[in-house]
Design a protein around this nucleic acid. Sequence first.
RNA 1: GGGCCCGUAGCUUAGGCAGGUGGAGCGCUCGGCUGAUAACCGAGAGGUCUUGCGUUCAAAUCGCAACGGGCCCA
Length: 1064
Amino acid sequence: MLYRNTTPHYLEIIFMLKEASQYDAKVLEQNIQKFWDEIDAYSRVRELRKNGKKFFFVDGPPYTTGRIHLGTAWNKIIKDSVLRYRSMSGYHILERAGWDMHGLPIEVKVEGVLGFKSKKDIETYGVGNFVAKCKEFALSHRDEMTVQFRNLGVWLNWKEPYMTLRDEYIEAAWWTLKQAHEKKLLEKGLRVVNWCPRCETAIADSEVEYADETDPSVYIKFPVKGEENTYIVIWTTTPWTIPANIAVAVHPSFEYVKVRVKKDGKEEILIMAEQLMKNVLKQGRYKEHEVIETMLGEDLHIEYEAPLGEKVPLQKTFSHNVYLADFVTAENTGCVHIAPGHGIDDFELGKKNNLPIFCPVGPDGRYTEEAGEYQGMHVREANQVVLDDLTENGLLLASGKISHRYGHCWRCKTSIIYLATEQWFLRVTDIKEQMLSEIEKVKWYPKWAGSARFADWVKGSRDWCISRQRYWGIPIPVWICDSCGNIEVMGTRKELELRTGTSKLPDLHRPNVDNIHIKCKCGGQMSRVPDVFDVWFDSAVASWATLNFPHDEKALKEWWPADFITEGHDQTRGWFYSQLGASMIAFGRAPYKSVLMHGFTLDTEGKKMSKSLGNVVSPEEVIAKVGAESLRLYVLSQNAPWDDLKFSWDEVGNVHRMLNILWNVYRFPLPYMVLDKFGPLEIKETPTALRLEDRWLLSRVQSLIKLVDAAMLEYNLHKATRPISEFILEDLSRWYIQLIRPRTWRESNDPDKLAAYYTLYEVLVTLTKLIAPFAPHISEEMYQNLVRNVDPEAPESVHMCDRATPREEFIDTELEKQMNIIREIVEASSNARQKLKRKLRWPVKKIVVAPKKEDVAAAVRRLEEVLKEQTNAKEIVLLAPGETWEQLGVEVLPVHAALGPAFKKEAGKVLAELKNADGKAIRKAITENGSFNLKEWTLTPDMVTFKDSIPQEIAHAGFSTGDVYVDTELTHEIECEGYAREVIRRLQDMRKELDLLVEEEMNAVVEIRDERVLELVLGSKDFISGEVRAQSLVLGSGIEVEGDLVKDWDVEDVKMKMGIVRIK
RNA sequence: GGGCCCGUAGCUUAGGCAGGUGGAGCGCUCGGCUGAUAACCGAGAGGUCUUGCGUUCAAAUCGCAACGGGCCCA
């Protein structure tokens, strides 16, 4: 790792430095993050852009439960990359990290710590004490999570995050509710809500989690009034709701039947949907049946007796009838048990028909006094008791079990129940149309996230129940008069203080605001509704709360609405929705202009990561193995952002390898540049000595910038990062670095070498800026060394630089295409070499390129030198497009099926002659004249086919637009060089084994037993000495070999013994 | 049960909107390079593009259905 000079930049700064040979991500990242802290890079970058175009981003606040997981890491990495890119593009970014800190999840955790079982325990402990514990929990977890996010290199405003527990935030929520009240969108009402009997609170639709559970599946007979032994049959999975039954619903257009059935000698008449009769009779094990009447649902006018009337006396005061409903489906019996106090559809039907909303169950899940004999029993235990009672009454037709998806409290996992309770609602159904039209104005990435998914959810949404009967949350700022029922909503702390005469509330949480009363106009006393807000309402106001509205109206005018937000697809029903709802109420428009919806992280099998499956991979684990940078680039490049990400260690490893190669590419030229005192600042103009390969790389990097910009415009982070990796691997590492190696070794200070330095430097600096948003650490490291160490005037951090922009003067797309062709030819030639087992170390006499098209020929002509070097060929022969190489023979392949019938007995002779005939002549005659005379026989085109025959020492391989022939014939010159290189490579290998420095000299002895080979190698003695830095080199056969290291070698079946000696 | 998305080589994926011979990386096998070197490079084998039906001269691509996975809802 290089020593970084962090002293103020007026001091003369040294020069580029060599880098560590190993890419150690962890050390590098820690150093860089420390460096950012030291110079306060984050704040200075924001300050630097403060005159730029405004870009307002709202961070979807993670819930402060503890550790971050891979999904939250991905989420923040996307945010960070987008914001860094925007910042480098000149935008003035406003963003605060956000924390969601209220609500049931934390209450449940704290209850767990304190060993509480119910709300009573909390009340005994004291609401103030409990709330203090919750606050402490939220704050400490926020600190832990902040560290984890920062370790990912995520730059958000961590110093001034918005927190839902702060008074300013609470006031934003209060203010918003006041708007709802003023616009008559706030309503208190009796509704059936999802209810958690453990937490004793209403739960939002969006808080209900669905999971499989096994429940009773029972068929029950309700006795029809005035008709003996006649029953209407219903089906339910919640027998505990039978004591609250008020009605039965049927579908108006289904056919219903009255069936006479017999079992155990008893006869009864059952009513059910015609199409479900078979099922019901099977369930009841009725052997005989007879349909006695058929009618439509709308004609079914029936009154029946409450099935448990004698147990629940209140039931005797209600009348029970059959009603029509469209929601009835052709399942089970086609007759639906209706308990308006315990079901949403039931409730609606009850309201419509003025039925009593009978709900004999209390908040704790126990039956109330209204339930008669069942009073005090918990509904969970009631199922069996109710079934037993029904059996006793002879009303249970069948009883079984069913496994189905059922709603649970998302935090404590208790099965929810439906209860009719008094709750506070936001009437979002009144503004649904406006919400839908706002959705269309927002830019969604991908499109379907808004037009299909979100719009669909909003269409089906109901009024939003915002009240919770809990403690740790924003208190609902509604005061009601005890005597006249008048309502007042407090919009701010100030308003509350003015209205009540109180001041110096420690904060706005419960219980501080609980015992404050207001005098009503009517003279009565007003008290606060004891409820707190649904937490989703907290985060819903984030976009203005983060701007400190309502206190700071100026900020709202300048920044709001948000330019961009991004969250996972679960937030469709969550934050995308809650924000839209609250914002429509408060401001009448969507609070965001564009939304990127991203996916979920799954395990390699594509399954959800969960603790119970044991397949969870934590961000820390990944960082510990390969560093944050690899994780960042992995999650950005692996998938399209909106697809789910199947986590794979192998792929993470590939990304890490790519970064390692980038590291190698970057540090490769440093020793040479340092040695040569290469000064990039001294080069004011593009060097004239640029080779074609230099111009090619310069052009490639400009094209890359354009690709990245185009992808970022659409938040296609995968399409931005993949081409970068490809450029690093293919263009830089595999091609350009290989091409310029000989140039960098040159010891003189010639323009050719400088041109390579210039190119590599220019490209690496550009690349540094280009990758900075995605890989902020390694790019900073490279920047500090390549730029800051050379130019004290340069911005202190790469993140303070402007984004890389394409330099048009370098673009040569023609050259890029031509280089691609050359690369294809090089690949084909190594393919061909491999066929004849001729290593690249051995030069070849010539390479013949047979192009199919002129552009291939043009590429070869233009880039001949590159081609020659990379194929290690002494000569390149280029044929005209379409031309056949004259050294290829033509093999004539006889078509026996045609020759046989034509020449009969003589066919054998013809075949024999054909073998020795001149293939080329035959092909020429056949193609030009349509026939060929072979002695006395005339050959026609149907009798022969042709194939190019390739001489033995020629290796052939095709590429997409041509063919390559490699002439592998050995000459004296080639053998000299080949063997010399074999010897050199082995001596180098031994040097390394002895840990000799690159420039360190040595003495060497090489014994070669084969006289001919010895002769060949002797001819290259000086060449070898130079390459391996040998002061003395002794070559011979039968000589004594000794030294600091002695090794036996087998070089292409020739035995050699080599010894080298370190010079002290 | 409904909505949306996804299903391509052993693994991770490109291509799909605009139909015309399916392209990578990893792994595997074989080879190369050796002044990036506890690195790097090349080649080869590997695919009924989940299944079925349809539209079309032609379907991985368009349509319908089924199956499997994910998120959301009932």
